[in-house]
Amino acid sequence: MSRAPKVPEPTLLDKAITWLSPERGAKRMHARLTMTALGGYSGASKSKRTLSAWTPTAGSAAADLLPDLPTLRERCRDLERNNPIGGGAINTVTTKTVGTGLALKSVVNRSILGWDEDQAREWQRKTESLFKSWAETTSCDITREQNFYGLQDLTWRSVLSSGDVFTLLTHKEQPGQHYSACIQLIEADRVCNPSNKADTEALTAGIERDADGAPIKAHILRSHPGALGVKDRVWDDRPFFNERGGRVLLHVYRRRRVGQPRGVPYLAPVIEKLKQLDRYTDAELEAAVVSAFFAVFIKPGQGGNPRLHHC
């Protein structure tokens, strides 16, 4: 059994129109009753004063994100550097998510390989030992600055502050090192359209995709666009998959919508609130400092009457 729609309350304008022209007033109320019956969600109302000025656009994931993404990155990074709440939030999430880093725990399906338990255990021990000899040294980092666990921390921190980060699995022969395999982290700003070309269905925010939306290759600037002393802008093309179909370029980010091409910084929804809170805190601290300069004391005046003095 359907429930009859609730009759909308007439506004002051409705009452005025009804007083001047009862016929027009009746038509207006009939139209409002029809709209109430058709729409079941009050959040979609366009007649309420609190919602009438709220007219968001219905763009795609790329259209809603990409025009604002550079500004979001810049402001989120500034909050991470200079805002104690923003920086603390990113530090806390990174620490609780990554911790000391993810370690390898080798487990093989010995029934498929036809191994007995001793063979499987020995292979797992050797594999974990070889992995540790690579992961616990700086050989795994192309810059030779961090070990594998430090790279995990930096990767997730970059995702939170910039929205995404790219990880290139490559090889580099280094003197005195047993392994050539290494990881190169690429900051989000370096992946962009060559020569500032406009985004298309095939090329979006520096990433080329096939007709199904799968990534094919990324266009990577050789240096950061904000680097000092760099005049020439040169792009390198890096495929996401090698000839055998193995993944060689990872795009690390959190997808929140279907068709979202790039990641959104973690602090993006609270940028305005954090900045307002920052300004409010600064104003309160300045007021406290100014008031600390003033001291009030009492000393006897003429006739023995106390007088208040301040400095």
Results as ranks from 00 to 15, higher is better:
Pro56Thr: 02
Ala135Ile: 03
Tyr253Ser: 09
Arg254Phe: 14
Arg32Cys: 00
Pro22Phe: 13
Val98Phe: 02
Trp156Leu: 12
Asn242Gly: 10
Lys46Glu: 09
Ser129Asp: 13
Arg81Asp: 12
Val264Ser: 06
Leu12Phe: 12
Lys132Arg: 12
Leu228Tyr: 08
Ala211Gln: 13
Arg255Trp: 01
Arg307Lys: 12
Asp282Trp: 00
Leu12Cys: 03
Ala292Met: 06
Arg247Asn: 02
Trp156His: 14
Thr55Gln: 07
Tyr266Ser: 04
Asn83Ala: 04
Thr100Phe: 05
Gly43Leu: 12
Val289Glu: 14
Leu308Glu: 04
Thr204Asp: 07
Val296Cys: 14
Gln184Asp: 10
Tyr266Thr: 02
Pro261Gly: 06
Thr34Gly: 03
Leu160Arg: 02
Pro5Glu: 07
Thr95Trp: 00
Gly39Glu: 15
Thr204Gly: 03
Ala202Cys: 01
Gly163Tyr: 03
Leu104Gln: 06
Cys76Gly: 01
Trp235Thr: 03
Lys6Arg: 13
Arg125Cys: 03
Lys6Asp: 08
Gly263Ile: 10
Ala26Ser: 03
Arg238Asp: 00
Arg307Ala: 12
Asp282Glu: 10
Gly229Leu: 11
Ala63Asn: 11
Ser21Asn: 15
Arg255Ala: 15
Ser2Ala: 15
Thr281Leu: 00
Gly229Val: 01
Ile220Gln: 05
Glu284Met: 09
Glu23Ala: 09
Lys172Met: 13
Gly259Val: 09
Lys197His: 01
Pro56Gln: 04
Ser195Asn: 14
Glu136Tyr: 09
Ala288Met: 08
Val191Pro: 02
His310Ser: 10
Gly101Trp: 05
Lys6Leu: 13
Ser21Thr: 08
Val107Cys: 07
Arg125Val: 00
His224Thr: 11
Asp118Tyr: 07
Glu136Asp: 15
Trp235Arg: 01
Gln174Gly: 06
Arg157Phe: 01
Pro225Glu: 11
Val258Cys: 01
Arg3Val: 13
Arg254Asp: 08
Leu285Gln: 08
Gly114Leu: 05
Val7Trp: 10
Gly213Asn: 05
Leu203Ile: 06
Gln184Ser: 13
Phe240Gln: 06
Asn91His: 04
Ser129Ile: 02
Ile220Val: 15
Ala89Glu: 05
Arg262Gln: 08
Ala62Arg: 10
Gln146Met: 14
Gly303Asp: 13
Ala295Thr: 15
Ala135Tyr: 03
Thr71Ser: 12
Thr97Tyr: 08
Leu151Val: 08
Tyr149Gly: 07
Pro269Phe: 12
